[in-house]
Design a protein around this nucleic acid. Structure first.
Length: 1086
RNA sequence: GGGCGUAUAGCUCAGCCGGUUAGAGCGCGAUCCUGAUAAGAUCGAGGUCGGUGGUUCGAGUCCACCUACGCCCA
């Protein structure tokens, strides 16, 4: 029935074999096709750029474990397919590097068509690697996935744009970007960080802005008249931005002063008077920053342009209050130039955006005949400073060393530059975003109102456009003077515009850019050059993966929102957000109902793994050493997934040994003996264990179960219940821990206690019960672990169902992954039995400790053990397993002590959890009073508590009546016994070794040594032997021992003959300790 | 600078509504047990529970502040 099991299994190789079997038998396809009730999953598409790493193993296995569970629960899983995020800057940068390019001009020279072709090709290379990796880690998904570069996918994205456009949610506004004037391109944050330096030498100038004495419209400053002619002082390191100044910002609540120095009146923050004006300045008056708001001042320069815009200068050149102002340096008054970095401030206060430097970094004309017109912006700094000085508008100037970004390619200083950009107006839906988030079940919980909720609360409009090439083209067409724009929502619509079929059109640049049409009223319509932020691509996948609404309307409706998604925590502002935003804006509902948010994986020192640090561990390295299952189990069982975790190969090895090998050895033990005995399950037992719930096929079998059998089945059922509940809550970690605990107990308690039942020769009902119990436990376990460790589960399942040996019994699925999730058999749950076993295990542990203390090894039998428990219920529980207790601790008898016995001393403590709230300040005195009890009163109290009666006690002169549950009783040792105590239990051993006990101990020693010799001699378990024993100095002991225990020794060692003599030549011989000296044993196979 | 999270034994991590002597696994040392086991048991060494202050009869747990690290944002 069963294939023999190698105890020294090599998991990586086993896994490869199972992969081959799955492939040959189309198991993945069959699993994907199964199920009835829908369960919706969204695959967060990895960027198809770069090879998969350990963090991808985590996210893929956490996706997989839930989906496998759902599939086994009979769900039809929608969306269990690959998805690839194919667009974006990382792909472009890689191609640029490959071609040795130096920025956008190189790409345009090279040709966008060829460039994008290379991008697409590069993506495919990575996808191939990913597919291999995905199969190896047993992440089961349909390989017929979605690709964000697909024309159909893009068409759906266009449809979404059009929905937003029609509702006025797609708009154009300025956005500050980091711009390289030489390369003529914006840089990504990543690129900026590559070239930023913090030791840049720049001018440091203090500028005087003359107060006009007026206030801005609708915002009168009470100080306007008084401060007329005074100077607002501002500090800057970028004089070139001064012409574009439109406002000065102060801190709302800070104290500002009018200070007199050098015959002038200055306004600045009080805290900065000394550093800016020196000690000589006198303070004329104090006021709050708020009082300055609305104050107008004379612009430093006039005629500043605002290309493509007609700014309202009535709103400019005034004081505003803003949170960005600090009093750490400068003057407490901040110069605001929205075009060059302060755009958000400008927008918040309704300020115009003026430009004084163009995209090539040159100071623009329009400021009049000034020497710095047409100069590079950095070189204009001294000229501007000089000009202001000549006009008496400069307080002082110097140099400062600080942070400034440079282009990582060419080293040119970057411009903060407000460019026209497209936005999605998410801020209009902030309340809905927040409300819909409340419906989402986050694991861990704190993300919902913490990081994600916080991110939503601080929502800003989504800047959606990128001036790049390899991305989803924005479907917006514009006429020459920018007066007319149209958003195209489908290919058909575009065809109608141009009047021809575009079926073969690649919707990417540059081809889509060539599609233009003549509008009768507005002239030639051309597409704007921008492409979409690739987060828009992935966030739209619920719609676009099905090519909705052009196809699959039913599928889309059934698959929105998702029941489950899972990614790492950095996606709160990435995919989690864009999914949520698009779903809320389009459909006003969340995109997903449950989400596991994973922490990051760090190296063994707690440092992020990165190529530059050289601390990256490749998944292959781990998998080749220990296998995928070991890695997966480590990821599930080692720590809760929401935390960052430290990783090392050693930890995977630990998880392999701790869990997989323990399970494997239990399984190997079972198969070894079942094969020896020719045992096989009945079809009913097999079917139940392989595909149903735990049950008994016959009353006879049920009656034959021992308490330990029933315990194992009760624990197994409780495990099924708990793991199921954890899965329903998306709590993978506690589920894995519960399984680990059960496997440990099954191996180290159940099998340990019941070994003899398997190897005894009679095939009686008791033996059947043991086989039934272990078989059922193991086979049911394979289904519980199938989602976690799919390979080991499969191997064990297939062998235990007889399929590996080609002799399947019963009609069960050929793969554990096609079997149903086990259900609980409530009849077999038995909390009392589980609790009793816990007490028993505690008693055993204490008994061993007591033996250890007394220096009495377990092989030496002892006459009696005394046990006292904290309650009669616990005593009864242990009594139920007394035989196990006696056997495990090698004692002849167990005596149970209750409170009436006078050999025990008692100590008392209050049950603080109950007493604390009730008695408060009395607690310390109460504790003392209980401690003081001794002798007869103590015995009386102990007796009362045990009988469930209240206890009267004088505390601080008051008579208290303590309830029995409010007093904790501890017993101390009876004198003259080897004792151990803990957990409310006390275990004492009678340490007297009588001559009889000594002989029995000697016999057991002998057996043990013979067994060792048998093993060393290479004998098989069932081999019979002739046993020779002799001892010179302990001859008498040997004679006596064999006289009483010879039969026992022969039976235990399978000796057909026991000869007291020196072994003959050719025998396997060992000299062993015996009594107080040595004995010689010899083993000859018969 | 802001938000969120983390900080407990040499390492990886538990620790519930605040409650009694803070636990587990690994590693280390010693002893024991074992004819499934690469396993297991017992004992031991190893902890100012990141720091300071507060609330409380009582704080690893709650509060405030601080420090370090991670992530996200500015």
């Amino acid at each position: 029935m069963f294939k023999p099991v190698a105890p020294d299994v090599a998991f990586p190789r086993l896994e490869e074999e199972i992969l081959a079997w799955w492939h040959a038998n189309r198991v993945v396809e069959r699993s994907l096709a199964g199920g009835e009730r829908p369960f919706v999953f969204y695959e967060g598409p990895p960027t198809a750029n770069g090879r998969p790493g350990l963090h991808h193993v985590i996210s893929r296995t956490f996706k997989d474990v839930i989906l496998r569970y759902r599939a086994m629960q009979g769900h039809r899983i929608i969306g269990r397919r690959e998805g690839w995020d194919t667009h974006g800057l990382p792909v472009e940068i890689e191609i640029e590097k490959k071609l040795g390019f130096n920025g956008k001009p190189d790409i345009e020279k090279f040709g966008i068509a060829e460039f994008n072709r290379l991008c697409r090709e590069s993506v495919w290379e990575y996808i191939q690697e990913w597919k291999t990796f995905t199969r190896r880690i047993a992440y089961w998904v349909d390989e017929n996935g979605y690709y964000t570069y697909d024309n159909k996918y893009i068409e759906s994205l266009w449809w979404i744009f059009r929905q937003l456009w029609d509702r006025g949610l797609l708009f154009r506004d300025y956005k500050v970007t980091m711009h390289c004037p030489r390369c003529g391109t914006s840089l990504s944050d990543h690129e900026v960080s590559l070239g930023a330096r913090d030791d840049v030498d720049d001018p440091s100038v203090y500028i005087k802005f003359r107060v006009t004495g007026e206030s801005a419209p609708g915002c009168a400053s009470p100080l306007a008249a008084d401060l007329q002619g005074a100077f607002l002082l501002a500090w800057t390191t970028t004089p070139w931005t001064l012409p574009a100044n439109v406002a000065l910002a102060v801190q709302h609540g800070a104290t500002y002063v009018e200070a007199h120095a050098g015959g002038e009146r200055y306004v600045l923050a009080e805290a900065l008077v000394a550093p800016v004006l020196g000690e000589g300045a006198s303070i004329a008056r104090r006021f709050k920053g708020n009082d300055l708001v609305g104050l107008r001042y004379e612009p430093l320069f006039t005629g500043v342009p605002a290309p493509g815009d007609t700014p309202d200068l009535e709103t400019a050149y005034r004081v505003v209050a803003d949170e960005i102002v600090t009093l750490d340096d400068g003057t407490g008054i901040v110069h605001i130039a929205p075009a060059y970095g302060d755009l958000e401030v400008g927008r918040k206060h309704g300020l115009p955006t003026l430009f004084s430097v163009d995209l090539n970094g040159m100071v623009m004309p329009g400021l009049g005949d000034l020497p710095f017109i047409g100069k590079f912006f950095k070189e204009a700094d001294p000229d501007i400073t000089r000009n202001l000085k000549q006009r008496g508008l400069l307080l002082k100037s110097g140099r400062v060393r600080h942070y400034y970004p440079f282009c990582w390619r060419c080293g040119t200083p970057l411009l903060y530059y407000a460019k026209r950009s497209w936005y999605i107006k998410t801020t209009a839906f902030k309340d809905d975003l927040v409300a819909n988030n409340q419906q989402i079940h986050w694991v861990p919980e704190h993300i919902r109102d913490g990081r994600f909720g916080n991110w939503l609360e601080n929502n800003i409009d989504w800047a959606i456009s990128r001036e790049r090439y390899w991305g989803t083209p924005l479907p917006i067409w514009i006429n020459a003077d920018g007066s007319h724009m149209e958003c195209i929502g489908s290919l058909a619509e575009l065809e109608a515009k141009v009047g021809r079929s575009l079926r073969d059109l690649d919707l990417h640049r540059p081809y889509v850019d060539e599609i233009t049409w003549e509008d009768p009223q507005h002239g030639l319509m051309r597409r704007i050059p921008d492409v979409a932020d690739c987060w828009y691509d992935s966030g739209s996948m619920p719609v676009a993966q099905w090519h909705y609404p052009f196809e699959n309307q039913d599928l889309f409706e059934a698959a929105h929102p998702a029941d489950y998604i899972c990614e790492a925590v950095d996606q709160t502002r990435g995919w989690f957000y864009t999914l949520h935003a698009i779903s809320t804006l389009l459909f006003d509902r969340p995109a997903f109902n449950n989400v596991i948010c994973l922490g990051h994986i760090l190296d063994e020192h707690g440092i992020k793994m990165s190529k530059s640090k050289g601390n990256v561990i490749q998944p292959e390295e781990v998998i080749d050493a220990y296998g995928v299952d070991a890695l997966r189990w480590y990821l599930f069982a080692a720590a809760p997934p929401g935390n960052a975790r430290r990783f090392s190969l050693g930890l995977v090895n630990e998880s392999l040994r701790k869990f997989l090998l323990t399970l494997w050895n239990t399984y190997s033990f079972f198969v070894t003996y079942a094969t020896l005995d020719g045992w096989r399950p009945s079809d009913e037992v097999l079917r139940a264990a392989a595909n149903g719930s735990v049950s008994f096929p016959t009353p006879e079998l049920r009656d034959a179960l021992t308490p330990t059998d029933r315990w194992a089945l009760a624990a197994l059922n409780a495990l099924v219940r708990d793991v199921t509940r954890n899965f329903e809550d998306y709590e993978v970690y506690p589920a894995a821990r519960a399984i680990e605990q059960f496997v440990d107990e099954l191996s180290n308690w159940y099998v340990r206690r019941n070994r003899r039942r398997f190897w005894k020769s009679e095939a009686d009902a008791d033996k059947q019960a043991a086989y039934f119990t272990l078989y059922t436990s193991l086979l049911t376990l394979t289904r519980l672990i199938a989602p976690f460790t799919p390979f080991v589960a499969e191997e064990v399942y297939r062998n235990l169902t007889g399929q590996t040996s080609g002799a399947p019994a019963g009609d069960v699925p050929d793969s554990v992954h096609l079997a149903r999730w086990p259900t609980v058999n409530a009849d077999l749950l038995d909390e009392q039995l589980v609790a009793d076993t816990e007490a028993l295990l505690a008693a055993v542990s204490l008994g061993r400790a007591a033996r250890k203390n007394a220096g009495l090894k377990v092989r030496q039998p002892l006459s009696e053990l005394w046990l006292r428990a904290s309650s009669p219920a616990v005593t009864e529980g242990v009594r139920r397993f007394e035989a196990d207790l006696r056997d495990e601790l090698n004692v002849k008898a167990v005596r149970y002590l209750d409170a009436s016995s006078d050999i025990v001393e008692y100590r008392f403590r209050p049950n603080l959890r109950l007493v604390g709230k009730k008695y408060g300040r009395l607690v310390p005195a109460l504790t003392e009073a209980l401690k003081a009890l001794a002798g007869e009163p103590a015995r009386a109290v102990a007796h009362a508590v045990e009988q469930g009666q209240p206890v009267r006690l004088a505390v601080n002169g008051q008579e208290l009546e303590l309830l029995p549950e409010e007093v904790l009783v501890e017993s101390s040792a009876p004198a003259g016994y080897a004792v151990a105590e803990g957990d409310g239990l006390i275990v004492a051993l009678n340490t007297t070794v009588t001559p009889e006990l000594r002989l029995e101990g000697a016999a057991r020693d002998l057996v043990r040594n013979v067994q060792d010799a048998r093993k060393s001699a290479g004998l098989a378990i069932a081999d019979r032997i002739t046993l020779y024993v002799s001892s010179e100095s302990e001859g008498a002991l040997l004679q006596e021992t064999l006289a009483g225990w010879g039969e026992y020794v022969r039976n235990e060692t399978l000796a057909t003959q026991l000869v007291v003599a020196s072994p003959p030549a050719g025998a396997y011989v060992e000299t062993v300790e015996f009594g107080d000296a040595e004995a010689t044993i010899g083993v000859v196979k018969t």
